[in-house]
Design a protein around this nucleic acid. Structure first.
Length: 691
RNA sequence: UGCCUCAUGGUGUAAUGGUAGCACAACUGAUUCUGGUUCAGUUUGUCUGGGUUCGAGUCCUAGUGAGGCAGCCA
């Protein structure tokens, strides 16, 4: 939106054309007029938002106007329901069209008169062929078509027949009006295109006034012309229609707009065609057009997107004729960007784990101050209740913390955001072994989150005081499709086979801070350390809050954790190569085998890993002393191992197996269920490379 | 074996015959009471072959690859 302030309009190929038209005197600043011409047969999606942004953006840059026109030339597909949603979505995005909404159907009479003119000029004729016959005689991409036997009717006969078509004397499909151009034209659109077909259908605006309806090629240029459009901007698939668009206008005494095509928006992990979106809705793979997983404007809105983040994203995409696929992370990033600056922070836990502070007085509740938005001082602060019983997120505690884990673990200390430092003293489990409660102590000296002795804690986690916590439903959304390109499917399957089965997870029993019961629908906020959410536009109520996950916060930890996971877990898709694999042993694809660094190593010491009957923890000398974990304990005892020269892989990411760090992997072979270690005989120095 | 269009890092997009730049992603590091934010830095590119030119991502030409077109849909 800010580029409008620049005086010279720069930059994309469309504006270049407009600039040239102004430079040549064809149009003056202020005369530029564009239009957004949706067919009211579906909801607007983010692809339309791009068209909107271009249509309105170009006109605005030249102090021109943009009209909104419903392209309602096909009564059997269109409906008023869509007209209203289209208007609402456009307004929500922040665009204001000039004057009243226009309807192509308002120009039907004018178009009809021009059609008679075409007949008079010998440029159109009534064809009695069936749809099937017309299809066959049109030829193919490589073969010319053949002329209709009705092609050379007299002007008088054509006029008579056309008037009778209008009068309703014929049944649907019995006759059409076609332009008389060239049945051998290399551009199929010129092979006598149909201008009018007979449709005895009720039109949502004109009712039963008409039973003949104009076809796109004939109608669209006329609509643009009627409205005085200077630049008719549309997407690439209409490129091949442009010559015909121009041809029709050239035959008539009317204003001639210029059609310019740009590439439509494609996004990874989503579909954009109306047909496919309609299927998703009709077959109930989503809950309606405004399902937060849909790329529709109303879907994005319900998800929590801001109009500005969509517009910003679009401006980052630019305007070109290149038909690519834009990474949806660009959109998500634009969203995070907008929300980071504006969304107030709150605390909530999605998967509550109870924490009891054993040294905190029973029954006492105190209020702590919390900053609402560190990016915006004017957002102020709020008071948070704190007490002896709290909830933290289950994911913020690990009984056996992996390396680099900064959160709570037995004996370790973390900071409760805006609260105190707490230390885990005891883990309480139920009969099945699941952790049900943590007993912790808090340090009264760290009130507000700082230690007077200056000691540091690595992690800060969010929490909610139990007695004041509000129960909430959180709808966690993920991508609707598993593949970047949902249409990438096996023979015989369609895009629905790529649907992500876990694109929606409904979490109930989430605990959030009291302030979140006082929101308005569509209010957006951040749940600290989790993501941005919004109060559902329709289902949120103070006594039953429902929140939609808008987008997660960036998550560096999950990257670290993933990097440390065994290689087999990283492979995607998880190929089913693993037969009963010993825990922690890694699998390497053949394509990666050449990258492995193999070295001879001498086992210095070995011991069993507690709680894992297959694992040995080894200290080996491979030029340096390293610790590795090997799943060989069922075959070899620690004593067997010490002193052995083995072959190991040295250039692997450190992995943590049963809580023990492993910096490498030894080679062993398995045959008929018997495991054998690969050892080296003779005098080879530890650290020597193998192969 | 037709016609139309497109081709710049992983993705999207600038450079209008004159130093290939930006954003996002990725990776390093710093800061941080959000493993968020912010900041600093690094890596990665003109589809191929000819030609014009002092000089080509840009112009010409041939090829390759991708998308679109055979609705009485828009």
């Amino acid at each position: 939106m800010s580029e409008s302030t620049s005086s010279t309009v720069s930059s994309d190929f469309i504006r270049d054309i407009v600039n040239a038209d102004i430079a040549s005197g064809k149009y003056k600043i202020g005369e530029i007029r564009t239009r957004f011409p949706p067919e009211p047969n579906g909801y607007l999606h983010i692809g339309h938002a791009k068209a909107l942004w271009i249509d309105f953006g170009v006109a605005r840059d030249y102090q021109g106007k943009t009209l909104l026109r419903m392209d309602d030339t096909n009564p059997v597909k269109e409906d008023v329901e869509y007209v209203e949603s289209i208007k609402e979505d456009i307004r929500w995005l922040g665009f204001e069209w000039d004057g009243e909404v226009r309807y192509a159907s308002d120009y039907f009479e004018w178009m009809y008169e021009l059609a008679e003119l075409m007949i008079e000029k010998g440029l159109a004729y009534v064809d009695d062929q069936t749809a099937e016959e017309i299809r066959i005689t049109r030829g193919t991409l490589t073969e010319p078509g053949t002329e209709s036997p009705w092609r050379n009717r007299s002007v008088a006969e054509n006029m008579d027949l056309f008037r009778r078509m209008r009068a309703g004397e014929f049944r649907d499909g019995e006759k059409v009006l076609r332009a008389k151009i060239d049945m051998t034209h290399p551009n199929m659109n010129f092979r006598d295109p149909v201008m009018y077909r007979i449709l005895h259908a009720h039109h949502h605006r004109t009712g039963d006034k008409w039973c003949i309806y104009p076809m796109y090629d004939w109608a669209h240029g006329l609509e643009d012309s009627y409205e005085g459009i200077t630049h008719s901007l549309c997407t690439l698939e209409f490129e091949i229609h442009r010559p015909l668009y121009e041809w029709f206008l050239e035959q008539l005494p009317v204003h001639r707009p210029q059609q310019i095509e740009f590439s439509r928006l494609n996004l990874t992990y989503t579909v954009m065609s109306k047909r496919k979106l309609l299927r998703l809705v009709q077959e109930k793979h989503v809950n309606g057009w405004d399902d937060p997983r849909m790329p529709t404007i109303c879907g994005l809105r319900r998800r929590g997107y801001t109009a500005s983040s969509i517009l910003n994203f679009l401006s980052g995409c630019g305007v070109t004729k290149f038909n690519g696929i834009t990474d949806i992370t660009l959109l998500e990033n634009s969203l995070r960007d907008a929300l980071n600056k504006t969304a107030n922070r709150y605390m909530g836990v999605l998967d509550p784990l109870k924490v009891v502070l054993t040294n905190y007085p029973e029954g006492r509740i105190e209020m702590l101050e919390a900053v609402n938005n560190p990016e915006d001082d004017s957002a102020g602060t709020r008071q948070l209740p704190f007490g002896r019983e709290l909830y933290i997120d289950r994911d913020d505690f690990r009984e056996v913390p992996p390396p680099k884990y900064h959160r709570l673990a037995p004996g370790s200390e973390v900071r409760l955001r805006w609260g105190y430092f707490i230390k885990c003293e005891e883990v309480i489990k139920d009969a099945s072994g699941e952790i049900v409660e943590l007993r912790c102590t808090y340090d009264p000296a760290t009130r507000g989150g700082m230690a007077p002795d200056g000691r540091k804690v690595k992690g800060t986690i969010q929490w909610v005081e139990a007695s004041n916590a509000i129960d909430a439903e959180v709808r966690q959304y993920d991508r609707l499709f598993l593949k970047e390109n949902p249409d990438d499917v096996e023979e015989g399957k369609d895009f629905l086979s790529n649907l992500n089965p876990s694109s929606l997870t409904i979490l109930t029993g989430c605990k959030v801070e009291p302030a979140l019961a006082g929101l308005e629908p569509e209010d957006r906020f951040q749940l600290e350390r989790i993501g941005y959410f919004c109060a559902d536009r329709y289902d949120y109520r103070s006594d039953k809050p429902v929140f939609n996950l808008t987008v997660n916060l960036k998550d560096t930890w999950s990257k670290i954790e993933k990097a440390h996971a065994p290689a087999s877990a990283k492979k995607e898709p998880p190929k089913a190569v693993a037969e009963a694999k010993p825990e922690g042993v890694e699998f390497i694809g053949i394509e990666d085998f050449g990258k492995l660094q193999l070295k001879v190593a001498k086992v210095v010491s070995a011991e069993r890993v507690e709680g894992a009957d297959k694992l040995l923890k080894l200290q080996v000398d491979c030029g340096e002393i390293r610790q590795i974990v090997a799943g060989v304990a069922t075959v070899y005892s620690p004593d067997d191992m010490v002193g052995k020269l083995i072959i190991m892989v040295t250039n692997l990411q450190p992995a943590t197996i049963r809580g023990v760090e492993s910096n490498g992997m030894l080679l062993a072979a398995k045959r008929k269920g018997e495991l054998r270690l690969l050892t080296v005989d003779g005098e080879i120095a530890p650290g020597a490379s193998v192969g």
